[in-house]
Design a protein around this nucleic acid. Structure first.
Length: 480
RNA sequence: GCCGGGUUGGCUGAGCGGUUUAGGCGGCCGCCUGCAGAGCGGCUCUACGGGGGUUCGAAUCCCUCGCCCGGCUCCA
């Protein structure tokens, strides 16, 4: 493993702490996943993209990351909306799980080691609840089983919420549930007649019903990653009550520390405010895909630190796309140069300067990422490398030196998850065909038949082949 | 109301007591090019939410006010 000094800001202690996994080189990481009842929106996707960034960085540092992200496939909204859609719960959630994964794939978010679905772990959840009952910290009420938070003295520690002072908000006051204390949370919900009719229930010692939401993460985390996990992450809104509840029930059952580092991602905003359907400022993932590449969105996501709110505007989106294009153009320049002639096989001042710059900037990049995954700062170093390479390429390149610089550049882009799906070109037949066409066009250019040459260029563009004339000849690439 | 986070140029985003003060995007002007694209060079923008204070010196420390965001029962 690489020597490092990774610092992570932990919500529980409210400061950055040196990161050391419990059982190196393994790192256990759990991220609260989506409830699959609709299209994921760009706020959700940011959280998961940032989780992916963190996971990639830990892997880059030599850790074996065991990464779990749950899929909540049984809960009020999935039941309600599947009913409205006239579908079974499973049909409905399977569909939206697919939509979710499609989004992750487009954004180059790597699949987790496991994506457990809540409905698959119900027996373990029942067992977990039973333990809580036996310990006397949970009670069976009219409409469900609840956790008695008075039995967990440290309740509120994670979120800083003093439950004695929580104002009795309208929502709490109008609570229709049958709990002893408004703050108690549900472990098991008893089925309604409609749910029974639709067959949406599980048998349990407390009758037919389904697990509460909080129990899911506690149980699946325990089953797949053990009693204590190194990192547990999620959107900032989950700190209270969701994560607070998880701590209470998990630590009660195991008697061990549940999570060593709590990470919370700030929310995405739109035009400086909250994104909501009712305000009419809702932007969907597909809206973005109409105008931009998924990588541009990924760049936008990571260009703002995960603990700072990201303000989405279309201007920012274009900004990100332009910046990303610049980074990609350098990849094209490198590839074209590598295919070109060997005009420089010496190691001079230019070569020395390039390698020194690239190596130094890489160190800066690594330091920044080690410091609580500070990607925005790290990007500054990436751009410095980008600039150094571009400048170097204005004159004949030493391919060996260029290769080393390019490898570092590519390595860092890879850590950020950028350009993973770059089209490398076509198959051999396509390659030769295009070479033939550009050769013929080159003849026309020599004859100064520019109108014809331009027509060829236009027609190729229509076919999705973008060509560029450079001093070393014509290059091309497939444009999606 | 309570708790927590934030407030930097056209945008994004560094800086965390004092060297040109980032970097990227945008804009402008050159170079290159038959044109286009990309790239290079130069320039522009020179800001720090308002008001006090501490200090030889503050975007950086303190006070105060404003504004924004999040949480306060199941929303990433």
């Amino acid at each position: 493993m690489v020597e490092h000094h990774i610092q992570i800001y932990d919500t529980m202690t409210r400061r950055k702490r040196r990161f050391k996994p419990l059982n190196p080189p393994t790192v256990t990481m759990y991220v609260c996943g989506p409830t699959v009842y609709g299209d994921p929106h760009i706020g959700n996707l940011r959280t998961f993209t940032l989780g992916d960034l963190i996971r990639r960085w830990l892997e880059h540092r030599g850790y074996l990351v065991k990464y779990v992200m749950n899929i909540t496939d049984i809960e009020d909204k999935t039941i309600r909306d599947s009913g409205n859609a006239g579908k079974t719960l499973k049909e409905f959630t399977d569909y939206y799980t697919g939509v979710f994964f499609r989004g992750l794939d487009l954004l180059s978010v790597k699949r987790a080691t496991a994506h457990p679905r809540a409905t698959v772990y119900v027996p373990q959840m029942i067992e977990f609840i039973q333990t809580l009952m036996e310990m006397g910290v949970a009670y069976n009420a009219e409409d469900g089983v609840y956790f008695d938070i008075d039995k967990f003295p440290r309740y509120g520690e994670l979120s800083g919420v003093d439950i004695g002072k929580v104002e009795r908000t309208e929502r709490v006051a109008s609570d229709e549930y049958d709990k002893e204390d408004a703050q108690d949370f549900s472990l098991w919900k008893k089925a309604t007649p409609e749910e029974i009719e639709r067959g949406i229930y599980f048998e349990s010692p407390w009758g037919r019903g389904r697990p509460g939401w909080h129990i899911e993460c506690s149980v699946m985390s325990k089953e797949l990653l053990g009693d204590t996990v190194d990192i547990h992450a999620g959107g900032e809104d989950l700190a209270f009550p969701h994560h607070e509840n998880e701590v209470a029930q998990s630590e009660t059952v195991t008697g061990k520390k549940f999570v060593r580092f709590w990470l919370h991602m700030r929310h995405l905003m739109i035009d400086g405010g909250k994104m909501s359907k009712s305000l009419g400022n809702y932007v969907s993932f597909d809206d973005i895909l109409d105008k931009h590449t998924p990588d541009a969105l990924r760049y936008l996501y990571i260009a703002t630190h995960y603990r700072r709110p990201l303000n989405f505007t279309w201007g920012n989106m274009e900004n990100a796309q332009n910046t990303l294009n610049r980074l990609e153009n350098t990849l094209d320049l490198i590839e074209n140069t590598m295919k070109g002639p060997d005009d420089n096989m010496d190691y001079g001042e230019r070569e020395k300067k390039l390698l020194e710059t690239v190596r130094a900037e890489k160190r800066g990049f690594v330091e920044d990422m080690d410091d609580d995954f500070d990607a925005p700062d790290a990007l500054g170093h990436l751009h410095a490398i980008n600039g150094a390479v571009n400048e170097y390429l204005t004159e004949p390149a030493n391919k060996g030196v260029l290769r080393e610089a390019a490898d570092i550049y590519g390595e860092l882009l890879g850590v950020l998850g950028l350009f993973e799906k770059r089209s490398a070109g076509g198959d051999e037949a396509t390659e030769r065909l295009i070479a033939m066409i550009t050769d013929l066009r080159e003849e026309q250019r020599k004859e100064k038949n520019y109108a014809f040459a331009d027509l060829i260029r236009d027609r190729l563009a229509e076919a999705g082949v973008e060509i560029q004339d450079t001093a070393d000849g014509t290059t091309w690439k497939l444009k999606s």
